[in-house]
């Protein structure tokens, strides 16, 4: 019965192991396992309303508007980016690859940026977007719960938010979270 005295130590080791495991889940490649990841409360809800100017080259006067009503009918991929956003450059080549591939059309939200800077960026590195909307004040970003761009939202054909990727889009995240819904809708 002497080993009874080891029980508290075993419990302690177990607790430490559990804490160490949960603390270090950031090593994993899943965004949900990143301890700084904040899940979006918008998932499963209707997209928040927005009404933004379309960034056109050359600039149109007055610029066309785009609202949440224009999203309806097919799934949409909405990517918040900016010319000043360094992490956005990490995902840019992959977005270009998606744009060159099959029928994925990405809507870009130019977050807290100027049209001139966005045009310059896309002129230099290529434009992966089907459509770009200007959010100079970050109003749509705030309304959508954006806290660190790049962030990419998946909205289904009924206008329901289905997924949010925080941080650069990766091929793995795309395959796992975006592709199934987009393919089902095709």
């Amino acid at each position: 019965m002497r080993y009874r005295y080891f029980i508290p130590m075993i419990v302690l080791v177990g607790i430490v192991a559990l804490l160490a495991y949960t603390l270090n889940r950031g090593w994993s490649t899943q965004p949900e396992d990143d301890p700084t990841y904040v899940p979006s409360p918008l998932i499963g809800k209707t997209v928040p309303a927005f009404d933004l100017a379309v960034l056109a080259t050359p600039p149109a006067e007055p610029p066309a508007r785009f609202t949440q009503a224009d999203l309806k009918g097919r799934p949409a991929v909405i990517n918040f980016f900016a010319s000043w956003c360094v992490a956005c450059r990490d995902e840019h080549p992959f977005l270009m690859q998606l744009a060159h591939g099959d029928q994925v059309s990405i809507i870009g939200i130019d977050y807290k940026d100027t049209p001139q800077a966005a045009r310059r960026l896309l002129g230099e590195h290529g434009d992966p977007y089907h459509l770009i909307l200007e959010d100079p004040e970050g109003a749509m970003g705030l309304n959508w719960g954006v806290y660190g761009i790049p962030e990419t939202y998946l909205v289904d054909a009924h206008g329901i938010v289905r997924y949010k990727q925080v941080g650069p889009m990766t091929p793995a995240a795309w395959r796992k979270h975006f592709q199934p819904l987009l393919e089902a809708a095709r």
Binding site: A82, W84, K112, D113, A117, P136
Partner: peptide, 10 residues
């Protein structure tokens, strides 16, 4: 210019 985040004066 333009590599900084735009913080508009509101």
């Amino acid at each position: 210019a333009g590599y900084a985040q735009v913080q508009s004066v509101r």
